[in-house]
Protein backbone atom coordinates (compact mmCIF):
# COMPACT_ATOMS: atom_id res chain seq x y z
CA UNK A 1 0.00 0.00 0.00
CA UNK A 2 1.11 3.60 0.51
CA UNK A 3 4.55 4.47 1.79
CA UNK A 4 3.33 6.06 5.01
CA UNK A 5 2.08 4.19 8.03
CA UNK A 6 -0.47 1.45 7.55
CA UNK A 7 -3.16 2.25 10.07
CA UNK A 8 -6.68 0.89 10.27
CA UNK A 9 -7.76 3.96 8.31
CA UNK A 10 -5.43 3.13 5.43
CA UNK A 11 -6.70 -0.40 5.41
CA UNK A 12 -10.34 0.64 5.28
CA UNK A 13 -10.34 3.76 3.12
CA UNK A 14 -8.86 4.40 -0.23
CA UNK A 15 -6.57 7.41 -0.41
CA UNK A 16 -8.68 10.27 -1.87
CA UNK A 17 -8.03 11.50 -5.39
CA UNK A 18 -8.15 15.17 -6.54
CA UNK A 19 -11.94 15.25 -7.08
CA UNK A 20 -12.66 13.70 -3.71
CA UNK A 21 -10.25 16.10 -2.03
CA UNK A 22 -12.00 19.11 -3.60
CA UNK A 23 -15.41 17.78 -2.57
CA UNK A 24 -14.17 17.17 0.99
CA UNK A 25 -12.89 20.75 1.15
CA UNK A 26 -16.22 22.21 0.02
CA UNK A 27 -18.25 20.09 2.44
CA UNK A 28 -15.90 21.00 5.29
CA UNK A 29 -16.26 24.72 4.55
CA UNK A 30 -20.07 24.49 4.43
CA UNK A 31 -20.23 22.51 7.68
CA UNK A 32 -17.96 24.97 9.48
CA UNK A 33 -20.09 27.87 8.29
CA UNK A 34 -23.28 26.12 9.52
CA UNK A 35 -21.73 25.42 12.94
CA UNK A 36 -20.59 29.06 13.21
CA UNK A 37 -24.08 30.29 12.32
CA UNK A 38 -25.61 27.92 14.88
CA UNK A 39 -23.34 29.15 17.65
CA UNK A 40 -24.04 32.74 16.63
CA UNK A 41 -27.81 32.17 16.82
CA UNK A 42 -27.51 30.62 20.27
CA UNK A 43 -25.35 33.44 21.63
CA UNK A 44 -27.71 36.02 20.13
CA UNK A 45 -30.70 34.31 21.68
CA UNK A 46 -28.92 34.22 25.04
CA UNK A 47 -28.14 37.91 24.67
CA UNK A 48 -31.73 38.82 23.82
CA UNK A 49 -33.12 36.80 26.73
CA UNK A 50 -30.57 38.29 29.09
CA UNK A 51 -28.69 35.07 29.84
CA UNK A 52 -25.39 36.85 29.34
CA UNK A 53 -26.20 39.46 31.99
CA UNK A 54 -23.60 39.96 34.67
CA UNK A 55 -26.02 38.94 37.44
CA UNK A 56 -26.10 35.39 36.05
CA UNK A 57 -22.33 35.10 35.92
CA UNK A 58 -20.92 37.27 38.68
CA UNK A 59 -21.40 34.65 41.42
CA UNK A 60 -18.79 32.54 39.62
CA UNK A 61 -16.29 35.12 40.84
CA UNK A 62 -17.01 34.20 44.46
CA UNK A 63 -14.67 31.55 45.95
CA UNK A 64 -17.58 30.06 47.89
CA UNK A 65 -19.31 29.13 44.62
CA UNK A 66 -16.26 27.23 43.49
CA UNK A 67 -15.80 25.63 46.87
CA UNK A 68 -19.35 24.34 46.62
CA UNK A 69 -18.85 23.09 43.08
CA UNK A 70 -15.57 21.47 44.12
CA UNK A 71 -17.36 19.73 46.99
CA UNK A 72 -19.81 18.25 44.50
CA UNK A 73 -16.99 17.35 42.17
CA UNK A 74 -15.23 15.39 44.92
CA UNK A 75 -18.53 13.71 45.74
CA UNK A 76 -18.89 12.61 42.11
CA UNK A 77 -15.33 11.34 41.99
CA UNK A 78 -15.79 9.44 45.24
CA UNK A 79 -18.97 7.69 44.06
CA UNK A 80 -17.41 6.96 40.66
CA UNK A 81 -14.19 5.57 42.14
CA UNK A 82 -15.87 3.34 44.71
CA UNK A 83 -18.58 2.19 42.29
CA UNK A 84 -15.92 1.52 39.64
CA UNK A 85 -13.77 -0.52 42.03
CA UNK A 86 -16.77 -2.51 43.27
CA UNK A 87 -17.91 -3.14 39.71
CA UNK A 88 -14.45 -4.44 38.78
CA UNK A 89 -14.44 -6.98 41.61
CA UNK A 90 -18.06 -8.02 41.03
CA UNK A 91 -17.50 -8.19 37.29
CA UNK A 92 -14.52 -10.54 37.68
CA UNK A 93 -16.42 -12.72 40.15
CA UNK A 94 -19.45 -12.95 37.84
CA UNK A 95 -17.20 -13.81 34.89
CA UNK A 96 -15.30 -16.46 36.87
CA UNK A 97 -18.58 -17.98 38.03
CA UNK A 98 -19.97 -17.96 34.52
CA UNK A 99 -16.90 -19.62 33.02
CA UNK A 100 -16.39 -22.01 35.95
CA UNK A 101 -17.94 -24.95 34.15
CA UNK A 102 -20.06 -25.70 37.24
CA UNK A 103 -23.53 -25.68 35.70
CA UNK A 104 -25.75 -24.16 38.45
CA UNK A 105 -23.12 -21.53 39.33
CA UNK A 106 -22.56 -20.62 35.73
CA UNK A 107 -26.31 -20.37 35.10
CA UNK A 108 -26.83 -18.14 38.14
CA UNK A 109 -23.99 -15.87 37.04
CA UNK A 110 -25.44 -15.70 33.54
CA UNK A 111 -28.84 -14.62 34.87
CA UNK A 112 -27.35 -12.05 37.27
CA UNK A 113 -25.10 -10.61 34.57
CA UNK A 114 -27.95 -10.22 32.11
CA UNK A 115 -30.21 -8.76 34.80
CA UNK A 116 -27.80 -6.00 35.78
CA UNK A 117 -26.93 -5.38 32.16
CA UNK A 118 -30.56 -5.07 31.19
CA UNK A 119 -32.03 -3.04 34.06
CA UNK A 120 -31.54 0.76 33.89
CA UNK A 121 -29.40 1.99 36.78
CA UNK A 122 -32.11 4.50 37.75
CA UNK A 123 -34.45 1.61 38.47
CA UNK A 124 -31.83 0.00 40.69
CA UNK A 125 -31.37 3.33 42.48
CA UNK A 126 -35.13 3.54 43.12
CA UNK A 127 -34.97 0.05 44.53
CA UNK A 128 -32.28 1.05 47.04
CA UNK A 129 -33.90 4.43 47.72
CA UNK A 130 -37.57 3.58 47.84
CA UNK A 131 -38.02 -0.16 48.18
CA UNK A 132 -35.40 -1.11 50.77
CA UNK A 133 -36.42 1.51 53.40
CA UNK A 134 -39.93 0.03 53.36
CA UNK A 135 -38.40 -3.13 54.77
CA UNK A 136 -36.63 -1.14 57.45
CA UNK A 137 -33.27 -1.19 55.64
CA UNK A 138 -31.75 2.28 55.86
CA UNK A 139 -28.42 2.85 54.21
CA UNK A 140 -26.44 6.09 53.83
CA UNK A 141 -27.07 8.17 50.71
CA UNK A 142 -23.55 7.45 49.51
CA UNK A 143 -24.26 3.72 49.31
CA UNK A 144 -27.75 4.29 47.92
CA UNK A 145 -26.12 5.74 44.81
CA UNK A 146 -22.85 3.79 44.77
CA UNK A 147 -24.28 0.28 45.09
CA UNK A 148 -26.76 0.44 42.18
CA UNK A 149 -24.26 2.16 39.90
CA UNK A 150 -21.70 -0.53 40.76
CA UNK A 151 -24.21 -3.34 40.18
CA UNK A 152 -25.27 -1.96 36.81
CA UNK A 153 -21.65 -1.64 35.73
CA UNK A 154 -20.67 -5.08 37.05
CA UNK A 155 -22.94 -6.79 34.53
CA UNK A 156 -21.29 -4.98 31.66
CA UNK A 157 -17.79 -5.54 33.07
CA UNK A 158 -18.46 -9.27 33.50
CA UNK A 159 -19.10 -9.42 29.76
CA UNK A 160 -16.00 -7.34 29.01
CA UNK A 161 -13.90 -9.74 31.09
CA UNK A 162 -15.45 -12.73 29.40
CA UNK A 163 -14.62 -11.30 25.99
CA UNK A 164 -11.05 -10.84 27.23
CA UNK A 165 -10.81 -14.42 28.43
CA UNK A 166 -12.15 -15.66 25.10
CA UNK A 167 -9.58 -13.54 23.28
CA UNK A 168 -6.65 -15.35 24.95
CA UNK A 169 -5.50 -18.06 22.51
CA UNK A 170 -6.68 -21.52 23.53
CA UNK A 171 -3.14 -22.87 23.34
CA UNK A 172 -2.17 -20.83 26.40
CA UNK A 173 -4.60 -22.75 28.59
CA UNK A 174 -3.69 -26.06 26.94
CA UNK A 175 0.00 -25.50 27.63
CA UNK A 176 -0.75 -24.66 31.26
CA UNK A 177 -2.91 -27.76 31.69
CA UNK A 178 -0.29 -29.92 30.05
CA UNK A 179 2.38 -29.01 32.62
CA UNK A 180 -0.02 -30.08 35.34
CA UNK A 181 -1.74 -26.87 36.41
CA UNK A 182 -5.32 -27.37 37.59
CA UNK A 183 -8.02 -25.60 35.56
CA UNK A 184 -8.38 -23.07 38.39
CA UNK A 185 -4.66 -22.25 38.48
CA UNK A 186 -4.61 -22.13 34.69
CA UNK A 187 -7.26 -19.42 34.81
CA UNK A 188 -5.63 -17.41 37.58
CA UNK A 189 -1.98 -17.65 36.48
CA UNK A 190 -2.17 -17.82 32.72
CA UNK A 191 -5.50 -16.84 31.19
CA UNK A 192 -6.79 -14.05 33.46
CA UNK A 193 -3.58 -11.98 33.54
CA UNK A 194 -3.49 -11.97 29.75
CA UNK A 195 -7.23 -11.29 29.48
CA UNK A 196 -6.90 -8.29 31.80
CA UNK A 197 -4.22 -6.78 29.59
CA UNK A 198 -6.48 -7.14 26.60
CA UNK A 199 -9.48 -5.48 28.24
CA UNK A 200 -7.82 -2.66 30.19
CA UNK A 201 -8.70 -0.03 27.57
CA UNK A 202 -12.37 -1.08 27.45
CA UNK A 203 -12.49 -1.20 31.24
CA UNK A 204 -11.32 2.38 31.46
CA UNK A 205 -13.81 3.55 28.85
CA UNK A 206 -16.48 1.82 30.91
CA UNK A 207 -15.51 4.16 33.76
CA UNK A 208 -16.95 7.00 31.67
CA UNK A 209 -20.33 5.28 31.86
CA UNK A 210 -19.94 4.94 35.62
CA UNK A 211 -19.16 8.66 35.96
CA UNK A 212 -22.24 9.51 33.92
CA UNK A 213 -24.39 7.13 35.96
CA UNK A 214 -23.43 8.95 39.14
CA UNK A 215 -25.31 12.03 37.92
CA UNK A 216 -28.58 10.55 39.16
CA UNK A 217 -27.24 10.92 42.70
CA UNK A 218 -29.64 13.84 43.15
CA UNK A 219 -32.42 11.27 43.39
CA UNK A 220 -31.01 10.19 46.76
CA UNK A 221 -29.86 13.74 47.63
CA UNK A 222 -26.22 12.75 47.72
CA UNK A 223 -24.11 15.91 47.25
CA UNK A 224 -22.41 15.10 43.96
CA UNK A 225 -21.64 17.61 41.25
CA UNK A 226 -25.12 17.40 39.76
CA UNK A 227 -26.90 17.74 43.09
CA UNK A 228 -24.78 20.71 44.13
CA UNK A 229 -25.42 22.30 40.75
CA UNK A 230 -29.17 22.05 41.38
CA UNK A 231 -28.78 23.70 44.78
CA UNK A 232 -26.71 26.49 43.19
CA UNK A 233 -29.42 27.02 40.58
CA UNK A 234 -32.20 27.37 43.14
CA UNK A 235 -30.11 30.03 44.87
CA UNK A 236 -29.05 31.95 41.79
CA UNK A 237 -31.61 31.24 39.05
CA UNK A 238 -28.60 30.79 36.73
CA UNK A 239 -29.72 27.48 35.23
CA UNK A 240 -28.01 27.70 31.85
CA UNK A 241 -24.81 29.10 33.31
CA UNK A 242 -24.39 26.53 36.08
CA UNK A 243 -25.19 23.58 33.84
CA UNK A 244 -22.80 24.98 31.26
CA UNK A 245 -19.94 25.02 33.76
CA UNK A 246 -20.88 21.59 35.15
CA UNK A 247 -21.07 20.09 31.66
CA UNK A 248 -17.56 21.32 30.97
CA UNK A 249 -16.35 19.67 34.19
CA UNK A 250 -17.94 16.35 33.22
CA UNK A 251 -16.48 16.59 29.74
CA UNK A 252 -13.02 17.26 31.20
CA UNK A 253 -13.20 14.25 33.51
CA UNK A 254 -14.42 11.92 30.80
CA UNK A 255 -11.92 13.30 28.32
CA UNK A 256 -9.16 12.56 30.82
CA UNK A 257 -10.47 9.02 31.28
CA UNK A 258 -10.60 8.49 27.53
CA UNK A 259 -7.06 9.76 27.12
CA UNK A 260 -5.96 7.35 29.85
CA UNK A 261 -7.64 4.48 28.01
CA UNK A 262 -5.96 5.42 24.74
CA UNK A 263 -2.62 5.63 26.54
CA UNK A 264 -3.14 2.23 28.17
CA UNK A 265 -4.23 0.70 24.86
CA UNK A 266 -1.04 1.90 23.24
CA UNK A 267 1.07 0.72 26.14
CA UNK A 268 -0.46 -2.74 26.41
CA UNK A 269 -0.96 -3.03 22.66
CA UNK A 270 2.43 -4.43 21.84
CA UNK A 271 5.15 -3.67 24.32
CA UNK A 272 6.95 -6.72 23.05
CA UNK A 273 7.51 -5.51 19.51
CA UNK A 274 8.92 -2.16 20.56
CA UNK A 275 11.36 -3.89 22.86
CA UNK A 276 12.50 -6.17 20.05
CA UNK A 277 13.33 -3.22 17.85
CA UNK A 278 15.42 -1.71 20.61
CA UNK A 279 17.23 -4.91 21.28
CA UNK A 280 17.16 -7.25 18.30
CA UNK A 281 18.17 -10.81 18.93
Amino acid sequence: MSAHTTSMRDALYEAPGPKTRRRTLIITAISLALVAIGIGVIIRQFYITGQLDAKYWSFFLRPSTWRYIAGGFVGTLRVAAVAGALALVLGILLMLARTSGIKPLSFAAHVITDFFRGVPSLLLIYFFYLALPQYGLRIPAFWMITTPVALAASGVLAEVFRAGVNAVPKGQAEAALSIGLTPHKTMMKIVLPQALRIVVPSLISQLVVVVKDTTVAYVVSYPDLMQNARVLITNTDALVQVYFVVAILYILVNYAINQLSIYMARRSGNPIISRTTENPT
Binding site: P169, G171, Q172, E174, A175, A176, I190, Q194, R197
Partner: peptide, 9 residues
Amino acid sequence: FQSFNLFAH
Protein backbone atom coordinates in the same frame (compact mmCIF):
# COMPACT_ATOMS: atom_id res chain seq x y z
CA PHE B 1 2.61 -27.95 20.50
CA GLN B 2 2.75 -26.88 16.90
CA SER B 3 2.31 -23.23 17.87
CA PHE B 4 4.74 -23.40 20.85
CA ASN B 5 2.19 -21.89 23.25
CA LEU B 6 4.75 -20.26 25.48
CA PHE B 7 3.05 -18.15 28.15
CA ALA B 8 3.05 -14.81 26.36
CA HIS B 9 3.07 -12.64 29.49
